[in-house]
Computed example of a mutant assay.
Amino acid sequence: MKAVTSNLNPINETLSRWHEMVAARELSKVGEIAREDVVFRSPVAHTPYHGREALTLVLNTVMNVFEDFKYYREFVSEDGKSVALEFSAHVAGKELKGADFIRFDEDGLISEFEVMIRPASGLMALGQAMGARLEGKLDVLKG
């Protein structure tokens, strides 16, 4: 997906930066476009994660787990404060499809980020790969 640049509102600027980070496969600075109290909901964890540090750790790690990651559709809410980004990827030979649901605040910062993934075999492969890379690191960040 191509990032749009021009005189954009804060949400569009943030979304454009997001797409640039994803295209570069480098999400270590995602905290710069998120609220300090951002909430991240994982497709494999019951309890949400809070804060920029957790968001950055999870998203940067998942970008290294996903193979052939590609966004192919984008939906924007009427108020422009929510987007759904539909994607596909592979993990450990399993194909998956998913959606990132991103909510922005009035300043254009990410306030909520939720991920949903199907089928179950792809989700399980992702959970195993992420668990191996993040073992013990996220427990400290839950709250």
Rank of each mutant, 00 (worst) to 15 (best):
E78C: 07
L141C: 06
F113N: 03
N9R: 10
I11G: 02
R133N: 08
V38W: 01
P10Y: 01
G108Q: 00
E36P: 07
L141E: 13
V115R: 02
D79M: 07
V44M: 06
V44L: 08
D139W: 07
F101Y: 01
S121G: 05
P43N: 11
G122I: 01
M124H: 06
F75K: 02
R41G: 04
F66E: 12
F101D: 00
S121P: 02
S42Q: 00
H46D: 14
F69A: 14
K94Y: 07
L134V: 10
G136I: 14
A54C: 03
V62M: 14
D107R: 01
R41Q: 14
G80D: 06
E53D: 09
P48E: 12
E20L: 14
F101H: 06
V140K: 11
V62N: 12
E74I: 12
V22R: 03
G80S: 08
H19Q: 11
K97I: 13
L15S: 06
K2T: 12
V44K: 05
G31Y: 02
M116C: 14
A45G: 04
F104H: 03
S82G: 08
P119E: 05
A34V: 01
P43R: 10
I110R: 00
V62S: 10
A45Q: 15
K81Q: 15
V4I: 13
F101N: 02
F69R: 04
A120K: 08
E26T: 04
R103T: 07
A125K: 00
V83D: 13
D107A: 07
N9Q: 12
L59M: 15
E106V: 07
E36V: 07
V39N: 05
M1E: 15
N7Q: 12
R35G: 08
V39I: 15
E106P: 04
I110P: 00
L126I: 10
D37E: 10
L8M: 09
F104N: 04
I110K: 00
A3E: 13
F40Y: 12
A23D: 11
E86F: 10
S6A: 13
N7T: 13
E20C: 06
M63I: 08
K137T: 13
A120R: 09
A84L: 10
M116D: 07
L15T: 02
G93H: 11
V38H: 01
K97H: 11
Y71G: 03
K81I: 09
L55M: 13
I110H: 01
V4H: 15
P119Y: 00
G80E: 11
D107P: 00
H50R: 09
V62I: 13
V44R: 05
G131V: 04
